[in-house]
Write a protein that binds this DNA or RNA. Sequence first.
DNA 1: TATATATTGCGAAAAAGTCGCAATATTATA
DNA 2: TATAATATTGCGACTTTTTCGCAATATATA
Lengths: 143, 143
Amino acid sequence: MHQDFESILKSSGQSVTKPRRAVFDALTRADSPLKNGEIAKLTPSIDRASVYRTLELFAKLGITTTTIRGWTPFTELAEPFKPHHHHMICERCGVVEEIESDTLEDMLTILASRHHFTLRSHTVELSGVCASCSKNLPQPTSL
Amino acid sequence: MHQDFESILKSSGQSVTKPRRAVFDALTRADSPLKNGEIAKLTPSIDRASVYRTLELFAKLGITTTTIRGWTPFTELAEPFKPHHHHMICERCGVVEEIESDTLEDMLTILASRHHFTLRSHTVELSGVCASCSKNLPQPTSL
DNA sequence: TATATATTGCGAAAAAGTCGCAATATTATA
DNA sequence: TATAATATTGCGACTTTTTCGCAATATATA
Ligand SMILES: [Mn+2]
Ligand SMILES: [Mn+2]
Ligand SMILES: [Zn+2]
Ligand SMILES: [Zn+2]
C-alpha cells in the first residue's frame, strides 16, 4: 500500500516527503471521510498550509476523492487505496451505507462515451430514508 | 414557479420572507451553480447570515442541491425548479456537459431499494476528458 | 388591527483557506 | 557518500468563509 502510494508520487515527478506521508497515513487510519481541519489535527507536526497543498496534490493525482456534507468538504482515499464504493445516506438518522454495483459502473462508462468522454472518475451519492427510519418515523422529521 | 416555491415554504410551516425570495430569485436567474458568496453579492440588501440560514433551509427542504469544486461549495436549484440533470466535467479544460438518462435514474432507484432505502435524491458527477481535449492534448497535463 | 412568534440584521468572532518567501529536505549526480 | 540543483516546507500575515447570540422587526393568524 505505502509502496503504491510512493510510486504514484515518484512516477509523476513528485517528491516523497514527511507531510505527504503523514497525510496519507492519517487518511489510511481513518474509517470515514475527514474534514481538512481534522486531517490537520491528526498531523500536528505538519503546517496547515502544507496539509492543504498535499491534499490538492492528492486530488490531482487521484489519490483521494472529496465530497461535501453541509458546506464542508470531506476527503477520503480513492482506489486502489480503498475499495471502490458509493454512499447511501439516510436523511433522518444520518446512517451511511456503502453501495456497490458493477452494472452501475458500466453504465456510467457508457454514458460518458456517448458524450465522447473518456471517464476517469466519478461520484455517486444517494440520499433517502433507511429501513428502520421509515418504520419508526412514518412522518418526516419536522423542521 | 414562484408559486411552487412559496407553497413549499408554507406547507412546511415556514414563512415567506424577503431574504428567501431574494435568494430564490438569484438562483433562478443564474445559469450555473453559484458560490455562497456569489449568492450573497447578488442579494446586497440581505445580510450574509440570513443568506446562509436561507441556503441551509433550502437544502433541508430540497429546494437546492450543493456540489463541490476544489474546496468550494456551489449551489443550484433542484427539481422541480430546474430540470433534473447531472454534470460531466472535463478535467483538462473544465467544460461542463449535462447528462441525462432515464435508465440511470431507474437503476439508482433499484439500487436503493435493494438496500431497503426509499430514494429521495441523489448526485452523480462524472469527471473525464472531453472529445476536443483528447484530440488536442494526447498527453496528460503535466503537474 | 392586535398578538404571538418566527425570522432578520447586526456585530463580533471563529474557522477555513491562501500566499510570498526564506529555510530546509529531497533528489539526482558525481 | 558528498555536493549541487531544485522541489517542498514552515512560517506569518492575511483574506475569505462561516457561525452565533441577541435585540429589533416582519410575518402569520385570528
Ligand atoms: Mn463508482
Ligand atoms: Mn439523476
Ligand atoms: Zn435512517
Ligand atoms: Zn476538455
